[in-house]
């Protein structure tokens, strides 16, 4: 996504994009009726340190009944989600870090009827904090609806290790189900 990505070498060994993508697809689809389902959010693209999500337009997202423009809060969820997912692609082990803070600048209203895309990217990983930034748009990133920066706090090492083990177990069992044993 961007040109300057500052990631310590020790932290990028890890979670491969294809595996991360399967995890994200599981996270947005597994829990029927949750907030991902409420909005209609889907994973569009995953690569190292960057995640793109997709949200088709819907009447349920409207914040201004006069214009049909979707609510800014929808952008908050979409950007928080893609930035949060992006943190996973920059870590050696899967660790779901909570959002510490998030700032959004609204460049222009989203266009009624159009699908929204949002990309989140990690630009710095430390032992305590992961720094991300994101952009939401319709056709092209050069014509953004909103920009954001979001920071995520790392978990305690013991909790992170336990979580990584759980996630890996779930992922392995799913992969086992996808690839029948010979």
């Amino acid at each position: 996504m961007a040109t300057h990505v500052e990631i310590p070498a020790a932290t990028i060994a890890g979670f491969p994009p294809d595996k991360a993508r399967r995890l994200f697809e599981l996270m947005v689809s597994a829990n029927k009726g949750d907030h991902f389902h409420q909005l209609g959010l889907a994973i569009e693209h995953v690569d190292a340190r960057c995640v793109r999500v997709r949200l088709p337009y819907g009447e349920h997202l409207v914040g201004n009944p006069d214009t049909g423009v979707i609510h800014g809060g929808v952008l908050t969820t979409v950007l928080d989600t893609c930035c949060g997912f992006a943190t996973l692609t920059a870590l050696a082990q899967p660790e779901l870090c909570p959002t510490m803070d998030l700032r959004i600048d609204y460049m222009r209203p989203a266009t009624p009827g159009k699908t929204l895309y949002a990309e989140g990217e990690v630009y710095r990983v430390t032992d305590q904090v992961i720094f991300t930034r994101g952009v939401a748009y319709h056709e092209t990133r050069d014509h953004p609806v909103a920009h954001c920066v979001a920071n995520f706090s790392r978990l305690d090492a013991a909790i992170a290790a336990q979580m990584a083990e759980q996630i890996t177990r779930v992922m392995d069992s799913l992969e086992g189900a996808h690839e029948p044993k010979q």
Binding site: A30, D34, V74, T76, T77
Partner: peptide, 27 residues
Amino acid sequence: SAGNVGNPTLPALHGGAIGGCMETAAA
């Protein structure tokens, strides 16, 4: 509401739902 959940294992509200609610409240 289950519809605002982002993390089912805790369970916790989606941070975006909290933010969206606050932004709606402000407007």
